[in-house]
Design a binder for these strands. Structure first.
Length: 212
DNA sequence: CCCTCGATTGACT
DNA sequence: GTCAATCGAGGGC
């Protein structure tokens, strides 16, 4: 058993949400429950940069019970439901800056058999989307919201991380491209990794799935 | 109260 | 490629 090193406050300190989103690529997202530990390497993430970002839940200072977790500081887990699926955000900034990162895809490394049971889909379909990866982890409620990735069963492990050969920046998925913030390149993914979401069936792949 | 719409997915032409 | 399911949040009245 190797030791895990949960993301500490310092991981989030003194840098932009965009920088944090990119640095999350290659870290492990791990979920431990009584079935064991499930998860994988984060290969895709999007930054949502708060009150000026028309695509963000906190746009224009909006603060409701739905978006409240965004105001609870770095590392806060923000799970919300969209069209019947659960999505996972990590809050990135201090309580007066309601910003976060949406984890959009992981490359499975832990508990793959269990994840295939949770979500019986072939190949990259297991975890190549924000709702899909949560289904694979078996998280289908908001229990962990308001907990912190530093000490929750759902954690970011920095100890055994990898690093992308290169990162692609692109407009975010599912946001209105005509809106003010619609074209901002705040979606980041590991170049050549097949688990990034929305890729064509036969997308070019890099050796090592794009890791150094 | 009623209406609109979404940080998605999966099925289908 | 297109499109509908589906349901709660949010906003208007």
């Amino acid at each position: 058993m190797t030791t895990s090193q949960p993301a500490a406050q310092s991981f989030f300190t003194n840098r932009s949400t965009q920088a944090i989103a990119q640095d999350l690529l290659g870290t492990h997202l791990l979920y431990t429950n009584r079935r064991g530990t499930l998860g994988g390497l984060i290969v895709e993430a999007e930054a949502y940069v708060g009150t000026d970002d028309t695509a963000a839940h906190a746009y224009n200072g909006r603060r409701t019970p739905f978006s409240e977790p965004l105001y609870h500081g770095p590392g806060t887990i923000y799970i919300y439901q969209l069209r019947g699926f659960f999505l996972f955000d990590i809050v990135t900034q201090a309580i007066d800056q309601p910003q976060g990162v949406l984890i959009r895809a992981i490359e499975p490394t832990h508990g793959i058999e269990q994840m295939r049971l949770n979500r019986p889909k072939p190949g990259v379909e297991l975890t190549n989307g924000p709702g899909k990866l949560m289904g694979a982890l078996g998280i289908c409620d908001q229990q962990l919201t308001f907990q912190n990735v530093a000490d929750a069963p759902l954690m970011i492990d920095l100890a055994h991380r990898r690093y992308p050969q290169s990162i692609v920046a692109a407009p975010r998925i599912g946001v209105n491209s005509k809106a003010t913030s619609g074209q901002l390149p705040y979606r980041y993914y590991v170049a050549g990794n097949p688990y990034a979401s929305g890729l064509p069936k036969r997308q070019w792949q890099r050796t090592n799935h794009g890791w150094l």
